[in-house]
Write a protein that binds this DNA or RNA. Structure first.
Lengths: 345, 345
DNA sequence: TTGAAAGCGGTACCAG
DNA sequence: CTGGTACCGCTTTCAA
């Protein structure tokens, strides 16, 4: 049975030398053509182009980057398990924003994941070993070992989300405090008084800040802050269900919930429905993100819109700026959020 | 306001030369220590180790791979949009399987996405340019341009899912025909006679084969195959909803649905509920994948379990074998599936 | 066990 | 506009 294109194996890649020979010019000229230098005669240019075409020449990036010090690729590092990475629409949209910007500059985006300690060690070697020109770091938790190592090694880094401790690393963040504040203020204005919150992880800026916004809003409205109305999740749907159960158990009289992510809010809705609490009649619910699922829940979710694609784009821009201007100092950017009112309040 | 670790910028990475100088040995000896050669005296070894530690030396991978011809990293290429990649749990589990195997060999897995034509061109340059040692290709559609180019360039490739045309490329696949066959046979045995199917994309092996299994099972059971009972989706939940609506419109009398993915089955369930058809009373539903959502639908989904982590592992193993034995020929592996019966039938 | 030196495949400077 | 050539940082003979 014949199969098409049963090519001879691994005829080793042609080198610039061979292209030069085939085109009857020097290596230098081939290099000029490849890199689009204007100072090449048309004759030479077309001879080289033909040779490249014929031999299927592709420049060896290792050799090139050894001298240029660039690789033309950027890493997106996600310190998160595959399951969360792939379950949370936040990542997909962020990636879309980033890759758009990078694609315009013909930069390749490579995605790297790391969980276990040994994986993280390998990852660090990979990143500092010159495989990539810069790093976009998403969903980092408490420990700033990696970004600091990178900075120390001279690898440009931009964080997604502000760091929770005082490290001088550039970042883009959403206005989590403001967003949470708006959400809770809105609930209070609707007459809710026993506003619970399913907060995010305390080792992530987004977790801490959304809780802070919640507190601030209650304070301004002269509503007492009660520990019993606060329970943390980890941004997943499952953790939202879990937290909602705990909160209802603890405070059956709660009349509103602010969840620090839409996924957790969706989990909360499900539990409320199971326990026959009407939404928004008995309990009002607000999420955070305005991700796609906010429109698929029943009722649809009132939530805080984050400009997620924009977030990704800004991270990429910041990284590019950092590469162009290595001594540009630490950059910080906070993006506004917006309250989106739907059926759950 | 002081911020910790405000390091001096980009003190250029130390080279092996500097380590050698610091340790009072030659470059060759440093290299031997780095690469764990046994033929180094203890004295030299510890001197080098100290110097490495002190200077924070990390080998330049470009320089190394220029000579070794290896990069110790493998690419996972997904020819799919970010949104589908991140929405389908299939990918997460596959990645987990792969990265486990690769991590054991201290190989870095890098994930690459490509959609637009220009992105694909860049991706091809990246892959053939020597950035990686091998490619795992997932969710490829009709066109085999990329894997064939890679093969031609001597880059080892393994496909996830059999190719839809006769190209001689190694692959791992699930027994999609068999799985679909089992699903539909089960439905028929339960007395269902008007079994519809929401099939997968016709440019993907999984799509074609699951439809083939459906047909085969009907044939064996002497149930006529009807075009009107078949409508395609693209494995997403949305497409499942869409297809279910079309099918109900066309054949209001259908009494069972075999969906080629759990996500599509979940979409179908939702539409059935909206239209007040009881499941499994009026309509029985079977999915494919046994992904996490199969247990979160109401009722829980009867489905075909694919060994997804195993799938990822086998792909990685196959790729490693191919790298070790470049002339080993084309490898093919088909993994068994299993019917899992739950509430939807 | 160690060091000297020859590349690996490019880029870019310097003459011409 | 073109070619010759000196590196880039590392691995790997080959001799010592």
């Amino acid at each position: 049975m014949t199969e098409i294109d049963d090519v001879e194996l691994a005829r080793s890649q042609p080198t610039i030398e061979q292209v030069a020979a085939a085109a009857g010019v020097s290596r230098a000229t081939v290099s000029r053509v490849i890199n689009g230098s204007p100072k090449v005669s048309d004759g030479a240019r077309s001879a080289v182009s033909n040779a490249v075409e014929e031999l299927g020449y592709v420049p060896n990036r290792a050799a090139r980057s050894l001298v240029t010090r660039r690789t033309d690729s950027m890493a997106l590092v996600v310190e998160e398990s595959e399951s969360r990475l792939f379950a949370d629409p936040f990542f997909a949209r962020t990636v879309r924003g980033m890759s758009g910007v990078l694609a315009d500059r013909d930069l390749q985006l490579v995605l790297l994941m790391a969980q276990s300690t040994s994986e993280r060690a390998r990852l660090k070697r990979y990143l500092t070993g010159g495989h990539i020109d810069g790093v976009l770091l998403l969903s980092h938790h408490g420990d700033y070992e990696l970004p600091l190592s990178l900075k120390r090694a001279g690898v440009p880094v931009v964080l997604g989300g502000r760091p929770t401790s005082r490290v001088s690393i550039s970042y883009v963040d959403a206005d989590n405090v403001g967003g949470a504040h708006d959400a809770v203020t809105f609930l209070v204005e609707q007459g809710r008084r026993r506003v619970a919150t399913i907060s995010g992880p305390s080792d992530m800026g987004a977790g801490v800040d959304r809780l802070r916004g919640y507190r601030a809003a209650l304070g301004e409205a002269n509503v007492a802050y009660e520990e019993g109305l606060v329970h943390p999740g980890d941004f997943t749907r499952e953790s939202g269900e879990e937290a909602m159960k705990v909160l209802l158990e603890r405070r059956p009289d709660l009349d509103a919930v602010f969840a620090a992510s839409d996924l957790m809010a969706a989990g909360a809705l499900r539990v409320l429905k199971e326990q026959d609490r009407s939404v928004p009649g008995d309990v009002a619910v607000v999420g955070f993100d305005d991700s796609a699922i906010a429109r698929t829940t029943d009722p649809q979710l009132t939530t805080i819109r984050q400009p997620v694609e924009h977030f990704g784009r800004e991270m990429a821009h910041m990284l590019l700026r950092q590469i162009e201007t290595p001594d540009g100092g630490v950059q910080k950017l906070v993006l506004e959020t917006e309250l989106v009112i739907r059926g759950s309040t």
